[in-house]
C-alpha cells in the first residue's frame, strides 16, 4: 500500500476547551479518512491507465486529495484536536474494496463512476453543508475543498458522458451494478443512526446524535449527498425516473 501523508494518527486526544471541539474532531476525522481513501484510489487508478497523460492526471488528483487530508489535519490542530484517520474502518474499507474490484478488472470507467460520481457526490455535498456552519477557517476549508472536488467531478463528467453516448444501456447497467455495491455502503454510513456498531472512525461514541450542536444533522448530510448524487446522474443523462427508484431502494 502506498504511504499516507505525514500526519500523526497515533493520538485522538482532544485538548481543546471548546465544547464543540470533539464534534469537529470526528467530522474532520471522517473527512480526512475520505480524502486519504480518495488519494489511494487515484494512485491505484494511475497504475491501470494506458495513456501516460491519464496516469499523470490520476497521480495529480491523488496528490490533491492528500493535500485536502493535510488541510483537514491542520484545521484540527487549530482547534487543538488531533485528527485521526482509519481507511480500514468498516465502511471505508468496503468502499476501497469496491474500487479495487474495478482496478482488478482494469475498468477505468468503473473507477471513475465509483470515485467521481458516487464518492465525490458525497464529499461535495457534505463538505458544502459543513462549510456553511463550520467556524472560521475550518468552515472555509470545507467550502474550498467542496468546490475543488466539484471541479474533479466536472473533469470526469465529459469522459463519462462520451462513454455513455457509445452505449447508454450498457453504461447504465454498469452504473447500476456499482450503485448497488458502493451506494449501499454509503447509505449505511449516512444512515441517521449507526445501527451496525461503531464506525471505527469517531474517536468515542458516534458523532451523529451530537451534530445538532454544530447546526448539522445526519439527515441533512444524507439528504444533501443523495440530492447531489441524483443531480450528477441526471447530468450523465440517466433517466430521472430510473435513478429515483435506485435511490428509493437504498437502505436507511
Amino acid at each position: 500500500m502506498e504511504p499516507l501523508i505525514d500526519v500523526n494518527c497515533s493520538s485522538t486526544e482532544c485538548t481543546s476547551l471548546s465544547p464543540s471541539a470533539p464534534i469537529w474532531q470526528d467530522i474532520l476525522a471522517q473527512a480526512m479518512t475520505g480524502e486519504l481513501l480518495a488519494a489511494m484510489n487515484y494512485t491505484s487508478l494511475s497504475e491501470i491507465c494506458d495513456d501516460p497523460a491519464e496516469a499523470a492526471d490520476a497521480l495529480e488528483h491523488s496528490q490533491c486529495e492528500r493535500g485536502h487530508a493535510a488541510a483537514f489535519a491542520a484545521e484540527g490542530r487549530k482547534i487543538s484536536v488531533e485528527v485521526s484517520n482509519n481507511v480500514d474502518a468498516r465502511h471505508w474499507k468496503r468502499l476501497r474494496e469496491a474500487f479495487l474490484r474495478c482496478i482488478t478488472e482494469r475498468d477505468f470507467i468503473g473507477c471513475l463512476i465509483v470515485q467521481e460520481i458516487m464518492l465525490e457526490s458525497f464529499a461535495v455535498a457534505s463538505y458544502a453543508r459543513v462549510g456553511r456552519v463550520g467556524p472560521g477557517s475550518l468552515g472555509q476549508t470545507f467550502a474550498r475543498i467542496a468546490a475543488e472536488e466539484g471541479e474533479h467531478v466536472d473533469h470526469a463528467m465529459s469522459i463519462l458522458r462520451a462513454e455513455r453516448a457509445l452505449d447508454p444501456q450498457r453504461f447504465d447497467d454498469k452504473v447500476y451494478r456499482l450503485h448497488l455495491d458502493v451506494m449501499t455502503t454509503l447509505a449505511q454510513m449516512l444512515a441517521k443512526e449507526c445501527k451496525d456498531g461503531h464506525c471505527e472512525v469517531c474517536h468515542a461514541s458516534c458523532v451523529k446524535p451530537s451534530l445538532f450542536e454544530v447546526s448539522l444533522s445526519a439527515a441533512e448530510l444524507r439528504g444533501a449527498s443523495l440530492q447531489q448524487y441524483l443531480k450528477t446522474l441526471d447530468m450523465l443523462g440517466i433517466p430521472g425516473e430510473v435513478t429515483l427508484s435506485w435511490v428509493a431502494q437504498l437502505p436507511v
Binding site: 441517521k192 444524507r222 439528504g223 443523495l226 440530492q227 441524483l230 425516473e241 435513478t243 429515483l244 435511490v247
Partner: peptide, 13 residues
C-alpha cells in the same frame, strides 16, 4: 427527512 431533498424529476410514464 428524505423527500425534501429529492430534485424534481420524472416518476413514471
Amino acid at each position: 427527512d428524505i423527500l425534501p431533498w429529492i430534485p424534481p424529476r420524472a416518476v413514471c410514464h
